[in-house]
């Protein structure tokens, strides 16, 4: 078991660009979507000497949901976090190659990572609401970016909570501490908080791994709701989840992007034998 030279060659040089839109009948095609929103060009991420993500070539298509799967330690989270430069927090990390967002290099000299992160929102593995009220949690981002008016903030809070399908559950206790919510509610609050700054891309880093099945189903429904409005990337351990929520799937193994294809195709007819082994559960 391992990566074949052929796979590595194809991944790192030829590229795994996905242009064809192959959707199962139950998934609607999105008008105006499907253009490369984020593009990786021979993009590598290093922790010191260690190359955690190896020369990835890929286009993430706008407005669709892309799932990233792979065994733990394969670099999938690293890749996701690289997109809004959260890896900057890790000392000794650096990148080579290019990562383009709307055609501009994310790691370019004149990139302001603060503005970048406003465009590319992120939801983390464990729900991480601030120890503030629900309202203040949602309003945190807008306030940061200069919105002071109470009315406007209230509007944003309601809109974001509605988008995150949380409004009905919390509308009467917006001033309660966000930590008093259940785990699933907290995670949807985190989604709402991210939506409040009006990002274009939503990065979800294993958003359901700390949740029970019921809460997980709600998050998955939420992703379906948001599909079409945002470009969504979701890292997941759970292959069923990937097949349920995503339009495209990327499979990483040991830092190499082994396969990137429409989900329906990747799960039924994988091109690479590694992918097949993984999705059929021969290793994990």
């Amino acid at each position: 078991m391992g990566l074949t030279a052929e796979t590595i060659e194809r991944s790192q040089n030829a590229g795994t660009a996905v242009r064809d839109i192959y959707l199962p009948p139950e998934r609607k095609k999105i008008s105006g979507g499907g253009v490369p929103h984020v593009s990786a060009k021979k993009f590598s991420i290093y922790y010191g000497e260690f190359e955690a993500v190896k020369k990835v070539n890929a286009d993430i298509l706008s407005k669709y949901v892309t799932a990233i799967i792979g065994p733990s330690g394969c670099g999938k989270s690293t890749f996701l976090r690289a997109i809004n430069r959260m890896n900057d927090l890790i000392p000794n990390s650096h990148t080579t190659g290019a990562l383009l967002f709307d055609g501009e290099d994310v790691y370019g000299k004149f990139t302001d990572e603060v503005l970048l992160r406003k465009k590319i929102g992120m939801v983390f593995q464990k729900p991480n609401p601030f120890p503030k009220s629900i309202f203040d949690n949602i309003a945190y981002g807008p306030r940061l970016h200069g919105i002071k008016d109470k009315k406007t903030l209230e509007g944003i809070v309601e809109k974001s909570l509605r988008k995150a399908a949380l409004w009905d559950e919390v509308c009467d206790r917006l001033d309660k501490n966000a930590l008093s919510l259940s785990g699933g509610q907290q995670q949807r609050l985190c989604v709402a908080r991210t939506l409040a700054v009006e990002p274009e891309i939503l990065l979800l880093d294993e958003p359901t791994s700390a949740l029970d099945p019921k809460a997980t189903a709600k998050i998955e429904d939420l992703i379906q709701e948001l599909r079409g409005s945002y470009t969504i990337m979701i890292v997941t351990h759970n292959m069923q989840q990937a097949s349920r929520v995503s339009d495209y799937t990327m499979f990483f193994y040991e830092g190499v992007l082994v396969e990137h294809a429409p989900t329906a195709q990747l799960f039924t007819n994988p091109k690479d034998s590694m992918t097949e082994d993984y999705i059929t559960g021969r290793f994990s």
């Binding site: 927090l89 992160r117 983390f124 991480n128 609401p129 945190y140 940061l144 700054v197």
Partner: peptide, 17 residues
């Protein structure tokens, strides 16, 4: 917790903020 830091930075906040 480190997660607070990540969450805030992820929302486009500066370090000082």
């Amino acid at each position: 917790p480190k997660t607070y830091r990540e969450a805030s930075l992820g929302l486009g906040s500066t370090k000082w903020n």
